[in-house]
Structures are given as C-alpha cells and as structure tokens.
Amino acid sequence: RATCKDWCSALLPVVIPSPWLLLVGKNSDTCNFLSLPTRRSFTYSLLPELRGVQYVGSQAGWLAVFNKNLDVSLINPLTAARICLPSFLTLPNFELVDGSCEIAYAKAGGDKWNLLQTTSTQHRSYEDIMYHNGKFYCITVEAEVFAFDLSGVSPTVTVVAESTSLGLTHFDYHIPCSRVRHIHSKYLACSSTGELFLILRHAVLSYESLGWKAIMVWRYNPQRQPCWEAVKNLGNKSLLIGINNAISISTENFRGARRDCVYFTEAPVRTRVNGRPEIIHSIVVSDVERGKWARARANSQLQPHLLPPIWFTPSML
C-alpha cells in the first residue's frame, strides 16, 4: 500500500492496532515501538533524519522534530516520508513579557514562522495546544482556552473558556487560582464525539499518595458557569496524554487498555532510590473514578538513556 497511490487505492485498507508508544535512545541507531492494544514490541532501524533530533509532537503517523540547526520536519518513521518546514531561524524577533510563551505557526507553502497572536491574546503564556475540527485550541496557565482559526488571510480567535479567576472545584475540593497556575500542569484532550476535556496534573506526583488530587479531569460545558464541570467517570473511554498530543480511545474492543483512565508518558514522580528521595520521569496511569494513580507496566520497557516516550498512531500513507 505504501508503494504508490494506485496500489494504495486498489488494496483493502489495513487496520493497524493503535496507539503505540515510540521509545528512542539518545545515542541509538534503532527505535522501539510498543503496541498498547496487542502488548507486543518490535524494533525499527532509526532513520538518519531522526538521529539526534528533538521530538516536539506526533499526529496521524507523523513526528514533528527539529535538529541542532533548528531545521524543522514532519517525518513518518515507517515510510521514511519527510516534509520540510521553515527553519525556526525564521521566527520574528519578539520580547517575552513576564515569562510569557508565544505560539507561532507556518502555513503550507510558506517560508517562515509567524507569531500567533491577536489583540485579545497578547502576552499570554500557553501550556498546551490541540488541533480539532479545523481549529487550534490553546490553554493558558490561567486555564483560559482560545480557539484559533488559521483558514483565512489573518488568524481569528474565539474565547472558549474564560480565566478561572476564582479557581476550580473538583466536587468538594476547591483549587485556588494560584494553585491552578503554579502547582498544576494543564492539558487539553478531545473525544471522538467532540467533548473537550481539561486535565490537571500535580507538578510532581508523590510516593506519599496524593489520591485523586494528583490528577483531575474536567469536561467543558458551555451551558454552565464556570464552564468546567468535574468528571468522575470517563465510562468506556480513556485519555492518553503525551508530548504535545492527546488521544482519546474507546476501550470496548481494546483489550490492552484500561477503561476510565488517564495515561501520561512523562510524569515526574517523587520516589525513593536506594533509600534516598529522587524525582524520576515515568509513565503513569490514573483511574478517574477510583481516584488512584500508579506507574504503568510499560515502565519495564524504559531505560535511563531513553528520550521521553511518544504516543504514536501508525500510518503507511
């Protein structure tokens, strides 16, 4: 199917059980894939273009990477297809205000990166970004959510969720705005039915159990104020959170995944090594209804020399 478009259209579609975890060593000529549905792992020769790069995201079979020269590419590690994007050196000079983190975008056929900002979104500091239904959804450190539409000549923006100036309430537990801003990492995810989720993760998970206060999930509800309502059960869905990508899966026909859970690929965990406290990065899974989290069994595949794992949806196109 990957030979050419004619062969691809002539053959029946091949359903590849996904998602996978991509594990890459810092100085390795190979990469390992771990299939979550089948619980099988296998090794690929690492493409030359993927050696020594920084991984910044994954979507629909493509990896977004940049190298030490700040050259940016989209690469399919299975087919070796590559799309070159403008270099980060084309980013315009700008001044950060109060540690703000700006977002930049490049369009197909363009030769430079452009700052994504409007009058109403200047000097915001963003924590996560997600593409859904033709728009880019971005969440700030204040838990504001903006939807940017880049289909026109100039970007347009819609306010999806306003700042949680008084904090958030997860059932009977209130989180002040200062803790939302400084203590919790924020992620966006969207289900196949279009539901928008906000996930808060305590900055460092502790071996002294934080219970459900460590990882909490909210669902966007525009009919109420505040617009985030606490989620106690995801049903047959689970959320996979990773490096600049989030995946929602149905676990009904997915024997390799646990239902009603949130998986993280890079969570800092405070633990003890040889009797001494230490922080390590781990794959963790949180049971939403039970309010408990634990390190995932996939950690047995991790080695100290590996880069952070990446959720990967295989594609031969």
Rank of each mutant, 00 (worst) to 15 (best):
P19R: 09
A230N: 03
H174W: 06
F146Y: 15
E278H: 14
P277N: 12
L46M: 02
Q122A: 09
E195I: 08
W20H: 15
S282W: 07
Y207V: 11
R201T: 12
A143W: 06
C84G: 03
A267C: 15
F136C: 01
G57S: 12
G25D: 01
Y263Q: 01
H170E: 08
I103K: 02
L89T: 13
F94L: 14
C84M: 10
V284K: 02
M216W: 01
I249P: 02
I103C: 07
E208N: 11
L166T: 05
A80H: 06
S58T: 00
W293M: 06
K237Y: 08
C101V: 15
I103Q: 01
A81C: 06
P77G: 00
L47T: 02
Y187M: 04
V273F: 13
V153Y: 06
Q117R: 15
F66M: 02
A106T: 15
P155K: 03
V204Q: 08
F254W: 04
Q225I: 07
C101P: 00
N221I: 03
R290P: 01
F254L: 11
S206H: 05
I241S: 10
F94P: 01
W293N: 05
S41A: 09
D6N: 13
V97A: 10
A189H: 01
V269N: 05
L302N: 09
T265R: 13
I243Q: 13
I83K: 08
S151T: 14
Q225P: 00
P309R: 10
S163Q: 10
V14I: 15
E278I: 05
R272Q: 12
H182S: 08
P92M: 15
A257S: 11
S151V: 04
P13M: 11
T38F: 03
N67D: 15
S41Y: 07
L50P: 00
T38R: 09
A214M: 03
G134W: 02
W293D: 02
Y55D: 07
L166P: 00
G291I: 08
N244L: 03
L306G: 01
E142W: 08
K135P: 00
L116M: 12
T271C: 15
S120Y: 10
I129Q: 00
E127S: 04
C261W: 05
F94S: 14
W7C: 13
K232T: 08
V273E: 14
V269C: 12
I247S: 06
E49Q: 11
G242W: 10
H281W: 12
E142Q: 14
P277G: 11
T140Q: 06
L205H: 10
S315F: 14
K292Y: 09
D172L: 09
K107N: 09
T121W: 13
S41P: 00
I83E: 10
W212K: 13
R40C: 09
G57A: 14
A108H: 11
F146S: 00
A143D: 09
I283K: 07
P304L: 02
K112G: 07
A2L: 12
S191P: 09
